[in-house]
């Protein structure tokens, strides 16, 4: 089973390498050391959360702001973790959940659920390995190359992370009008907070939280039960 997991994890790992490369570049250009970028990736294994995390750190935001932003941004993992708990097989429990739960990401979750049967702990362990290595090594490569590569190339790769966000948002919004509504509200709020001078004092970490909570709450109130159409 572990081999099957590793096999299924390879494409995720390749994708993670290129995206975390972009994260490494962003971190170094934001004033972080290469080893700091690497540690962040090895300890968190999450794109949006890490991005928000370095934003909070770079702005010298508070620890509460850090905790709340990570909680809100990564809240989706709680949902995935819930779904996984329904599909994990009998042996996949206790200490195994404590350890392997660390590896829950959007892509790993999607692939694990896609197998269509009970999820074995050995399969899930195998599935995590390559993406984890890809995520860490990509960050390292990006952070180191960020110092070497010409600024023109770094500049171009810096947009890759946003490209990945767009690749997740657009197909979902195309398929589901409720998601489209939530995205539109969130974007409108985000632009408001960014461009209207009165809101200058709100840090970017909290801005993300405010936008996400208002837009999602509005979506849940107006379109309950439509999130997975």
């Amino acid at each position: 089973m572990i081999k099957e997991g590793i096999r299924d994890g390879i494409p995720i790992g390749l994708g993670y390498f290129s995206v975390s490369f972009s994260f490494g570049i962003l971190a170094v250009s934001g004033g972080f050391e290469w080893w700091e970028a690497l540690l962040i990736s090895m300890a968190n294994l999450t794109s949006a959360g890490q991005y928000a995390g370095i934003t909070v750190m770079a702005a010298a935001g508070g620890l509460v702001e850090m905790a709340v932003s990570q909680f809100v941004i990564n809240l989706r993992y709680a949902l995935m973790s819930l779904s996984l708990s329904q599909r994990a097989d009998k042996k996949f429990k206790g200490i195994y959940r404590l350890i392997l739960g660390f590896g829950i990401t959007d892509e790993i979750f999607a692939v694990a659920m896609n197998t269509g049967k009970e999820i074995k702990r050995s399969y899930f362990f195998g599935l995590i390995i390559v993406p984890y290595i890809g995520w860490a090594m990509g960050t390292l490569a990006g952070a180191v190359c960020g110092n070497i590569l010409s600024s023109v190339i770094c500049d171009a790769l810096g947009i890759a992370l946003y490209g990945m966000f767009i690749a997740i948002i657009v197909p979902a919004a195309k398929k589901n009008k409720a998601v489209l509504f939530v995205v539109a509200v969130s974007v409108a709020l985000s632009c408001m907070l960014y461009y209207i001078p009165v809101f200058d004092r709100i840090s970017s970490g909290f801005a993300i939280i405010i936008c996400a909570v208002i837009a999602s709450a509005l979506g849940a109130a107006l379109f309950p039960g439509r999130e997975a159409d």
Partner: peptide, 22 residues
Amino acid sequence: YIKSFLGYIPYAVLAAMTIPGV
């Protein structure tokens, strides 16, 4: 309502992070 709220969160987060930051 809670299920929907949790379901919409990832898209709302990513959207707010992308625009206008990108």
